[in-house]
Write a protein that binds this DNA or RNA. Structure first.
Lengths: 218, 218
DNA sequence: AAAGTTAGTGTCGTTCGTACACTATGTCAA
DNA sequence: TTGACATAGTGTACGAACGACACTAACTTT
């Protein structure tokens, strides 16, 4: 049994993005003990004068350079044994980064990578539980909020949006029913424009009217 | 500006009950500074070796003697200025105590009281925010889970259950629609018994089949 | 001009939510 | 014993939302 002297408060952030039709999480490979070689969520200790939200936001910015994206507190994990070095309670958050705003990860650091949620490497601490809970929360929010729009860029097609839903839920959706649901959301608006890609009919481009807002539906 | 040296982790518990057709919260009147005379949630520092859930559960038991009731983590509040004495992050919980299990509060301590949520006294720290969030969460869960059953005793009438909904939501519900919804929940079962009270027709008594479980509906 | 590829659309049946008012069964008092 | 009182208990009809389901439209390439 390790000495239990240290005590601390950390934030960990589950940073989601979608690329290549897979939901991915930003992970850092640990170099020191404990869990050397294992992967962990970006996070760190909360400075004495920093709000929890600010700390999570800063963690995200320091690792990715991304700011101003959707960020929400998830849960606090506090099993005494979760960190073998001592008592560390983690206030966890999750963030959504649209693929269009993906930073190019610094090439030197192979220790930072976007790993698919359905094929995670070995994770340190209880970070597997944290990611699982974040994924559940995200999937649940798809059903009753407009949170999925946080993954979209400036303009997008309905097929792209549908693909986001399918990727997060892990199941196919009916195209006509999906469009029925989504077309009369007040926060989505048809720009008259079209988007051509490949040898087929071009798609209408849509825009989010209030990109910063996540509305609760119903 | 006060010295910001102290740092700590606390849990605070919003303990709900319903009596007299009002949703009530257990509050403690503070005697020392800061916020002397103000009311606050039962809570306290988390010991280094205690899990967060266990700590919240213990807080509840120490103040009320109640144990084994519904208890769920709510949110972590961590604005640096929330406690003027120093940095204290609060991992907040909420608990539901059925009126039937209400403890008789120790008569000596007038400092412990069940205050109606719609007429709260002056609250210390950010405890008003915590209670508001707990109330919102509870009301939201009424819609898509069987959480309201946590307020019921061993046997109960549908009118009593409806009253719980109405008290938490702060609005009247239609009796026939309510009964339609609730009658075919698999977790509610008609005991053949009747309950007579007053000079009117006696009501059927129901029972929860799995009192410990809260199911998600739909 | 034909083949390939994705975009885009409508109907029907079912279920769910909601609005709405009267009868049933007990107690109590005159 | 009977009538007044108080709460328990019940059904229907309408509109909205949801889910299953298959074909046509528009563009590119060869």
């Amino acid at each position: 049994m390790t000495e239990r002297a240290l005590t601390g408060l950390a934030t960990d952030v589950v940073v989601f993005t979608i690329t290549d039709h897979r939901l991915r999480v930003l992970l850092v490979q640990r170099s020191g003990e404990p869990f050397s070689g294992y992967w962990s969520l970006p996070g760190g200790m909360v400075p004495i004068n920093e709000a929890l939200d600010d700390c999570a936001s800063r963690m995200l910015r320091e690792k990715t350079g991304v700011h101003g994206v959707y960020l929400e507190q998830l849960y606090s994990f506090g099993r005494p044994e979760r960190d073998p070095r001592g008592r560390v309670v983690s206030v966890s958050y999750y963030a959504l980064v649209p693929p269009a705003r993906l930073p190019s990860l610094p090439a030197e650091s192979q220790r930072l990578a976007w790993k698919p949620v359905d094929a995670l490497p070995e994770l340190a601490f209880d970070h597997g539980d944290i990611i699982a809970m974040a994924h559940r929360r995200l999937a649940a929010k798809l059903e009753y909020s407009t949170i999925a729009l946080q993954f979209m860029g400036e303009r997008f097609t309905l097929s792209e949006l549908q693909s986001v839903y399918e990727t997060i839920l892990g199941e196919q959706l009916d195209k006509r029913n999906f469009r029925k649901r989504v077309r009369n959301l007040p926060c989505i608006e048809d720009t008259g424009e079209r988007f051509r890609a490949g040898k087929h009919r071009p798609a209408r481009l849509f825009r989010v009217t209030r990109p910063d807002r996540v509305d609760i539906i119903k």
